[in-house]
Amino acid sequence: MQALTLANAPKQLAKFQSLIALFFLCLVISLLSDKFLTVANGWNVLRQISVNICISTGMTLVVLTAGIDLSVGSVLALCGAVTAGLLKNGIELPSANLFIGFTVFGSIISGIVLGTLLGWFNGFTITRFKVPPFVATLAVLTIARGLTMLWTKGFPISGLGSNFAYVGTGWLLGIPVPVWISAVIVLLAHMLTRKTPLGRYIYAIGGNESAARLSGIRINRVKMSVYAIAGALAAIGGIIVTSRLDSAQPNAGITYELDAIAAVVIGGTSLSGGRGSILGTVLGAIIIGVLNNGLVLLNVSPFWQQVVKGLVILVAVIIDKANSKE
């Protein structure tokens, strides 16, 4: 028995590898900088990563089905811009002499609906026309960015009012609102993957699509739902970003999809699908966030930050591979 538990010890440790990595990361940074381990900085980090957590939660669901969604950065920008535009200018139809104004709530809902539709469109082309997810979402990445430029005419949409700013900068019960939002999203997504049939189908499809189909799972429906959710979550991320800056930037969210994929991968989700978890991704996002924050506090050049981030991704995946071989 003794030998057995000892032999299992590395395996047990492997389960918590990201947690251990995070712990040492925090330890090292706090030794080097006294500004790191403060309450204010803690909220700061959490607020900064809340957008990535929104996006990477959706990305995790997509990756679990053995797919990928490259369009989230652009969808984020478009939905943020549309929300801002509707809120500020409404819709004017001079020919019909019609003006539709939007409340804060209305414009936010519109943005989320748009994100859902874009995600659904991804899922539609992937399932109906069998376009590989990489290509289908790459196309939407370009399309959504183009639409953002058209909608904003290339200029930021600013001055959105204090009510809207609350979403990205407000506090509720001593916790920043974006942190609340991302926490609720994580909780819901965790329940979805662990407690519902849809969640189980997501794992089943990623694990063996052919067996899943023969088991009577409606593959297309599940995939479309997953991409639609990813789109909606990207839209929520876009709304948070826009609110925090009090401005929708036409070039917002560029390369956000890569940060999301990095969080998913560092969190231990397999890019070939069927294996991984939402909580792993959250850890992945926190590691990236802490790393970014720490490197800034230590006055490391932003160029070096990118190099370090890349290396961390590599190391994380190599360790994960080594463990899963066991």
Binding site: A204, N208, A211, L214, S215
Partner: peptide, 16 residues
């Protein structure tokens, strides 16, 4: 190839 999700456990394969 077509019958099982090899990476899922026995319980999840039976209940799918």
């Amino acid at each position: 190839k077509d019958g099982l999700m090899l990476g899922l456990n026995v319980r999840k394969n039976i209940s799918i």
